[in-house]
Amino acid sequence: MADLTVENLSLRFGGLTVLNDVSFAVEPGELLALIGPNGAGKTSVFNCISGIYCGVGNIRLRNTNLMGRPPHEIARLGVARTFQHGELFGDMSVLENLLTGRHARIRTNPIAEMLFLPSVRRAEVMHRQAVERIIDVVDLERYRHAPVGALPFGVQKIVGFARALALEPSVMLLDEPSAGLNREEREDLARFILRIKHELKMTIIWIEHDMQMIADLADRIHVLDYGRTIAEGAPDDVLNDPNVLTAYLGTTTESAGG
């Protein structure tokens, strides 16, 4: 059974149709790339899945319906995401950012926290250990106490990725994790993505513009253009699909007419 199923998802802002009847499913442990030209509606799909936008249609995490649930509940069910522009907490250290990302997994109540009871202390230490494992996976050891706002951009992107990972999700939504990274940083990122895919068996949906990376890493590609699905399938087939090429590059006949 698929891990995450999106069926007939449509989204409108007033008269503007952002998503039109989008359907796809991701199998457990699969890496699905979601691509399309700027404004195709990729991030809107993520916003619908994580509950920030409320579209029409059907979104299921295994057997659980996600439609109409508030974002924090969806995160708690195990869907984590990164943001296109990082959206990190700049004043907080890397550790604090990751612990905040782990919020849904920590179970201490405010009364016990006020007194910092031994149970709270134990929980804090336990979750610190969990977060340290993630820091180890993504090589952030040397930055753990640094305020995130002062870190270089490439490192910040990795912190965003790690913060989503801290939730220990079953499904991970990556919104252009490689945007703005240089060659070397991209290679690191690819390594991290493959690592969580193979070692943690995580299901990943990945928005990306770097076609080389997608062709190398993705199991399957889903292509959107103006809010519609125009192709889906194995990387080699999709990247040579005439519809996809048209969407990205345009055609001479169309440009002559328009």
């Binding site: 509950g51 920030i52 924090h72 995160a75 995401r81 905040t100 919020h103 849904a104």
Partner: peptide, 9 residues
């Protein structure tokens, strides 16, 4: 919005 998406009510 980000806090909410991280699972914070």
């Amino acid at each position: 919005t980000v806090a909410e998406a991280l699972g914070i009510s």
